[in-house]
Write a protein that binds this DNA or RNA. Structure first.
Lengths: 223, 223
DNA sequence: CCAAAAGTGTTACGATTACACCCATGT
DNA sequence: ACATGGGTGTAATCGTAACACTTTTGG
């Protein structure tokens, strides 16, 4: 049996339909007490009017995860960001010119810890509060953002927040207010502290943060 | 700007890398008090020794979901099965001859309610207990099965079980034992009934099932 | 009538929620 | 000194888990 017969049999033929696959990355950032998302404007006539998630095509020699890392680096300069898959979108009409499937990833960072460097094809980037997105979001990226946001909320955990959004040492109030702002709920201070400390992943450094009335203790991740 | 310039700019070019995308479907079935999964052997020399999830390539005019429905129909004759996306796999070496990305879906059915009809490229299908899979599973389908199983367990809900696995009327013992067998845990009868009935989605028909000591009531989904 | 399975209610436990006062610090 | 925010404990509630006896039916 030849290779093409083989491929024919398993329904992956040389003639079979192939299409481009892109990744789009929903980078959430926590800034000024608000959850924001990073959107880009591209250097392309048809797209200059739309805000888009950073995204781009997957190549021969890379996995989707590699692609997401590469694309984000090229378009925004962002590096060393932790990713997770949200889902894949395959609607026929999601791109006006060519069929493109996209896999959406999400990440959460502290914008202050990362330098943004515009790529050649990028006219500009901006952080938008997720509660106040622009009206002109391109393709189906509004839906990608909604889905990614839901995914983020369902997968929030103390480790991620502490590692990505906070300094090495932080007060429990700082941790709590991030939760409250991202999830959009208010929590009782005593109950929050009890729950967080019960996990045993944080420890009190004994130091106090200066400049704040009350003199809150600074905590850090164990180990 | 020409179309190709446009596509170039957004990094989806005519020359850009394209690859085949397949769907693989993890069809779980509940039979003889055990959770099973449907595997196929194909009519292809290199694959006849391996068990595989039913799967096949996506075409131009279909979404991934359409593709999964089509593939399952063609290979196994299965129809009207409820699907959900598990995840997408993009490792470079997951297929020996050609790069193929695959999106895994999962489904849960009652094998007794469905007729299996072998497709042309299929030599045979068989239900395997998920606790007793064959050693010769092809490609990376062992991992797909593991991931899909975890997904199934996390997404079990009473509606799905009642609709897919049970007759219109069923006893609470029948419902409970499905849970116990799929999740691999034993549950207290009184607590289980309390939890299930509290949801208010089932109602007692007043009829009793014959042929079983104790005379259990038959329940059905409301509406 | 006996064995097997169904039906049922109460208590104990743990997790979560609600809630108020004193203490430390900055101004 | 006083205003602001930090630190702490207890009681109430809810959901979950443990547990045993009576009733129904088939054989």
């Amino acid at each position: 049996m030849t290779k093409s017969e083989y491929l024919e049999k398993i329904q992956v033929t040389n003639k079979s339909y192939e299409c481009s696959i892109t990744t789009d990355i929903a980078v959430f950032g926590y800034l000024d007490g608000e959850l924001k998302i990073l959107l880009t404007k591209r250097n392309v006539e048809a797209l200059t009017r739309c805000w888009l998630l950073p995204g781009g095509a997957m190549n021969l020699e890379e996995t989707l995860e590699d692609c997401a890392i590469k694309v984000l680096k090229i378009l925004t300069g962002l590096n060393k960001v932790h990713f997770d898959q949200v889902k894949i979108y395959s609607n026929l009409d999601r791109h006006p010119i060519k069929r493109v499937l996209t896999v959406c990833f999400y990440a959460l960072i502290n914008p202050e810890n990362h330098l943004i460097v515009l790529g050649d094809s990028v006219k500009g980037v901006r952080w938008f509060a997720v509660e106040d997105l622009p009206y002109n979001i391109g393709f189906d990226h509004s839906k990608l953002i909604r889905d990614a946001l839901e995914f983020l909320k369902n997968n929030l955990n103390d480790n991620l927040i502490a590692q990505e959004l906070l300094q090495e040492k932080f007060t429990l109030q700082e941790l709590q207010s991030i939760y409250e702002n991202i999830l959009g709920v208010r929590m009782d201070r005593r109950n929050f502290r009890k729950r967080i400390l019960l996990q045993g992943i944080f420890k009190n450094t004994g130091e106090k943060k200066k400049g704040i009335k009350g003199g809150p203790f600074l905590y850090k991740l164990k180990k």
